[in-house]
């Protein structure tokens, strides 16, 4: 055990457009790398079984739970976290949707919820209510009852598609 702790492996990755290099323990989780090494604390940890989704980020364009990926697995990769979503001081439509529709209360699940929503709308720009609820099954919220999260996603879908109403 003591030997394993002493072993360090170099990793390089681009996070929110900035390149980082570090030497890490092979067991270091990506979420801890982002939070503790890079100080990007917007990505949260809410469970230890990959259920809650508070830690969702993009890795190479795919949304992943960063508590289930080792930092070394992200070597050479491109990561985007909640901190990288707003562009030029403008909120992403998903962020705007959560604000407009009161899609958050305590805000702890929110970064993961927003990242998962963002990923959903990339795959399916005009999801039905059922599709939204299904797509967010891996993100747990204890405050909102999800109703306003669904509305937030619909708001964002509408904004991103230039105003056409989403189907229900």
């Amino acid at each position: 055990m003591a030997e394993a702790v002493a072993t360090r492996i170099p990793v390089k990755m681009t996070v929110n457009g900035t390149e980082y290099a570090a030497e890490v323990e092979p067991r270091l989780l990506l979420v801890h790398f982002l939070r503790d090494n890079l100080g990007l604390t917007g990505t949260h940890i809410g469970c230890d079984t990959s259920q809650c989704g508070a830690c969702v980020v993009y890795l190479n364009g795919e949304s992943i739970k960063s508590c289930t990926v080792l930092a070394v697995q992200a070597d050479g990769g491109e990561v985007m976290t909640i901190e990288g979503l707003a562009k030029d001081g403008e909120y992403d439509p998903v962020q705007q949707g959560f604000w407009e529709m009161h899609g958050l209360q305590c805000g702890y699940c929110t970064p993961g919820m927003i990242m998962s929503t963002h990923s959903l709308l990339k795959r399916n720009p005009n999801p039905s209510e059922t599709e939204i609820r299904h797509a967010l099954e891996g993100n747990l919220c204890r405050c909102t009852g999800y109703q306003n999260i669904v509305k937030a996603v619909q708001y964002a879908a509408e904004q991103m598609s230039g105003g056409s109403a989403p189907t229900s």
Partner: peptide
């Protein structure tokens, strides 16, 4: 009135500071 929450900008951008974020 249904005023949008003033707490939300920090929470939707990952700038909230929860206990695990205190450095």
């Amino acid at each position: 009135k249904p005023i949008k929450r003033r707490e939300d900008p920090r929470l939707i951008t990952g700038a909230g500071v929860f206990i695990d974020d205190v450095r």
